[in-house]
């Protein structure tokens, strides 16, 4: 009888756990190359050539290298962690998946949670050595946005399914591994981008504030009468997808800058004071800069 009770409890626990973790655990990547292979998107190119080409040129495709400030910023974070008494990091190789997840890689490489601590240490050492070839192997790619990060309301909608690409419609997907196409309820909502382009990470042991953009969108753009989503300004209908800002950085795209900023320069004609004739003639230059974007400029 006692055995039967234990057996019932065990069966109940097993059912509960399997219900919570709806999918089998994936074997974690042990090297950077394995992680890159796990998130290999080369097959996407066959059908989505245009968007793939744009993505390849984009900052998302080099998310560990990023802008001219990114590598230095992350190297600075590593130095900080080494200097912090309670971080558990004495040298770069001590950096674990948990360290990365708590700060930089929450956004720069969310798939780090599918890797072992050995991979976390390899990447940390690549930063210390400025080994950009290694840093370029993994990135924010098709699978990060269309699978891993595609479902925001996971207690309601469940975790992303491994054989599925999430987009704006349901159907089948012409790929050996990702056979299904499912509609993500937030794929076209600003919150999709806000997962990474968000505000401070106050709740973390390595308190930080890298990106601030989504806070500006919520608390300044919308209250001032803005009504567009991130996707409406940054993406447009080409090849069913193409992202305007995928070309390169937005600041280097004249068309994007023109849409975001209006600058007027009004130089008034000089005048001489009648009452104070000894003063030199004076003139006034008025510069008006209007930000039409959905967030502060500069921001990220």
């Amino acid at each position: 009888m006692r055995f039967l009770k234990l057996f019932v409890v065990f069966v109940f626990m097993s059912i509960s756990l399997s219900a919570f973790a709806s999918q089998p655990e994936v074997k974690k990547a042990k090297t950077v190359d394995e992680l890159a292979a796990m998130y290999d998107v080369s097959s996407c190119k066959q059908c989505h050539a245009k968007i793939f080409e744009e993505w390849e040129k984009s900052i998302h495709s080099r998310s560990l290298i990023g802008s001219p400030r990114t590598v230095g910023g992350i190297q600075g974070a590593i130095k900080n962690w080494i200097s912090f008494k309670h971080s558990g990091v004495k040298e770069a190789k001590d950096i674990t998946v948990d360290h990365w997840k708590t700060a930089c890689f929450k956004c720069h490489l969310p798939q780090i949670e599918d890797a072992t601590d050995e991979v976390a240490a390899q990447i940390a050492e690549a930063y210390v050595k400025n080994d950009r070839a290694t840093l370029a192997k993994v990135n924010i790619n098709c699978l990060v946005c269309h699978n891993k990060m595609a479902v925001t309301h996971q207690w309601r909608d469940g975790k992303p399914e491994r054989d599925t690409v999430y987009g704006t419609k349901d159907g089948t997907h012409m790929d050996k591994m990702y056979k299904n196409l499912k509609k993500s309820s937030t794929m076209t909502a600003s919150v999709m981008c806000g997962q990474c382009h968000q505000g401070p990470l106050i709740d973390r042991p390595a308190t930080t504030q890298c990106s601030t953009l989504f806070g500006s969108y919520l608390n300044a753009y919308l209250p001032n009468g803005g009504n567009k989503t991130c996707q409406e300004c940054h993406m447009k209908e080409v090849d069913g997808h193409a992202m305007f800002s995928f070309r390169d950085r937005n600041y280097s795209d004249p068309a994007m800058v023109k849409r975001a900023l209006d600058v007027e320069v009004d130089a008034k004609k000089g005048y001489k004071s009648i009452e104070l004739p000894n003063l030199p003639p004076a003139a006034k230059v008025i510069v008006k800069i209007t930000n039409n974007a959905g967030h502060r400029i500069p921001d990220g």
């Binding site: 969108y217 001032n224 803005g226 008025i286 008006k288 930000n291 967030h295």
Partner: peptide
């Protein structure tokens, strides 16, 4: 925070003095 705020206009004014 002196960035350009969304949907707002920032106005800068400069006074020029002409040399003699």
């Amino acid at each position: 925070d002196n960035t350009f705020q969304p949907l707002q206009t920032k106005v800068e004014s400069y006074d020029l003095k002409f040399p003699e």
